[in-house]
Design a binder for these strands. Structure first.
Length: 424
RNA sequence: GGAGAGAUGGCGGAGUGGUCGAUCGCGCUUGUCUUGAAAACAAGAAGCCUGCAAGGGCUCAGGGGUUCGAAUCCCCUUCUCUCCUCCA
């Protein structure tokens, strides 16, 4: 959601932003005419209500002064106004509802620094860390390694639920548990985040707040109570402060949360779906920040570094890319992805997406703060990023640390969590 | 699942049909005092929409109704608490 004032005062700027994101710029004109209509009705309704209020008030005073005849006269007059007020109110409500629906369709405006581009092929690499691991043998993909050590069971996952649902077994289950425990500890103890353990099921309002609804309902699993399984902890954690006014002294708020994530992956059939690359349920540690507007872009940079720090601690090669305008989706103003190198599949895998959402989500979720005590509340700026997603991290880890004899070395920092130095 | 009680401003908590958008306390802001702070005293401030402004409108969980007029009466929904039931 955007500032209405911005759309009214600088429609060209908004149009340009939508065009940069390959969105539908006619939204602006639709908004402008609907907004004018709404405001016309609001003024007219307000005038009628003011008249009716004035008469009602005078009746109270006349009764107090025992002028009953005059009061009766006023009552008759007020009665005749009722129908008109009701009709105007109904029209105003309808116009406002339409406006609200339209408003939710607007994408966020990309930051001026975001590179132009059509799709993922236009995303520039911002930086590389380390280099691609060299092997004296043909490195295997993680699904072969996992199979060899009986770490995941895709066939039984398909049996008990369906394709794309994974059973972790034995050391596989332990390794994935080790990874998220390590990451939560790291983000809270080393990087200064406060831990949250949220519900994995949320209501509709929460998903509207983060911007997943109304647009992306098909991507979500839904319950019979009109609840939804969360696609990321971003949703419950961002909505922690929905409809609240925070004090400036509380900011910045930095949360890290472990959660399961559930995605229907409705449009993703067939692409990069082998092994752990794209599954319907996965675990992730998510970072969410609530900050003052002026601090948002600095906080974005440091959040990327926080995501990277996990990969560095695990000794993995990765690159950071910046998403171009055509690939960044509707919600953010600027996004970095962190992609870890997986030598077995020979690809960089996205394990983190870190974005600044500005006031886009805080407007939808009504999350404000007082810049100073006594001042008018303003919208906080919200950022979130993965820190990081478990399955692809595990894939990269297995592929990077595989040995010629088929065993897998466990990185130093993970050993206390796994309880051993190697697998196999 | 059953029975009962409740939902009011940043927080706590009054208010049962007519200047109530709301007494009061805490917290907050400003001023006096002080080297500064604390304390004390005084003054001030709810949110949202609309308007250049003056102003106007809406909001006492949400929605609907009664009435000239609703925080207050009626109906529905949601949520919270207590007891019972059930359960990890």
């Amino acid at each position: 959601m955007l500032d209405r004032e911005l759309i009214r005062k600088q429609p060209d700027l908004v149009r340009q932003g939508i065009v940069r994101k390959k969105g539908d710029a006619s939204l602006v004109d639709q908004f402008l005419s609907l907004d004018a209509e709404f405001r016309r009705l609001a003024t007219e309704t307000g005038n009628a209500q003011a008249e009716s209020n004035a008469i009602a008030k005078s009746i109270g005073m006349l009764m107090g002064q025992k002028k009953f005849d005059e009061a009766e006269e006023a009552k008759a007059k007020a009665s005749s106004l009722k129908g008109r007020v009701a009709e105007l109110e109904a029209q105003e409500r309808e116009a406002e509802a339409k406006l609200r629906t339209l408003e939710l369709e607007f994408p966020n405006i990309p930051h001026e620094s975001v590179p132009e581009g059509a799709d993922e092929n236009d995303n520039p690499v911002v930086r590389l860390h380390g280099e691609q691991a060299k092997f004296e043998f043909e490195p295997k993909p993680h699904w072969d390694i996992a199979d060899q050590h009986k770490m995941i069971d895709l066939a039984r996952g398909a049996k008990i639920t369906g394709s794309g649902w994974v059973v972790y077994t034995g050391i596989g289950a332990k390794l994935q548990r080790a990874l998220f425990n390590f990451m939560v500890d790291f983000q809270t103890e080393q990087n200064g985040y406060d831990e949250i353990y949220p519900p994995f099921v949320v209501n509709r309002e929460s998903l509207i707040g983060t911007g997943n609804l109304p647009k992306f309902e098909d991507d979500l699993y839904k319950t019979q109570d009109d609840f939804f399984l969360i696609p990321t902890a971003e949703v419950p954690v961002t909505n922690l402060y929905r409809d609240e006014i925070l004090e400036a002294s509380q900011l910045p708020i930095r949360h890290a949360a472990f959660s399961g994530c559930f995605r229907r992956e409705a449009g993703a059939a067939g692409k990069d779906t082998r092994g752990l690359l794209r599954i319907h349920q996965f675990d992730k540690v998510e970072m969410v920040k609530f900050v003052e507007p002026a601090a948002a872009y600095d906080e974005l940079e440091s959040m990327v570094v926080d995501a990277e720090s996990i990969l560095q601690a695990l000794g993995l090669h990765y690159r950071v890319i910046e998403l171009c305008t055509g690939d960044m989706g509707p919600k953010a103003t600027k996004i970095y992805d962190v992609e870890v190198w997986a030598p077995g599949v020979g690809k960089y895998l996205e394990v983190s997406s870190v974005g600044n959402f500005g006031d886009y989500q805080s407007r939808r979720a009504n999350i404000r703060y007082r810049p100073e005590a006594g001042a008018k509340p303003e919208f906080v700026h919200i950022l979130n990023g993965s820190g990081v997603a478990v399955p692809r991290l595990m894939a990269a880890l297995l592929e990077t640390y595989q040995q010629a004899d088929g065993s897998v070395q466990i990185p130093e920092v993970l050993r206390p969590y796994v309880g051993r130095e190697k697998i196999g």
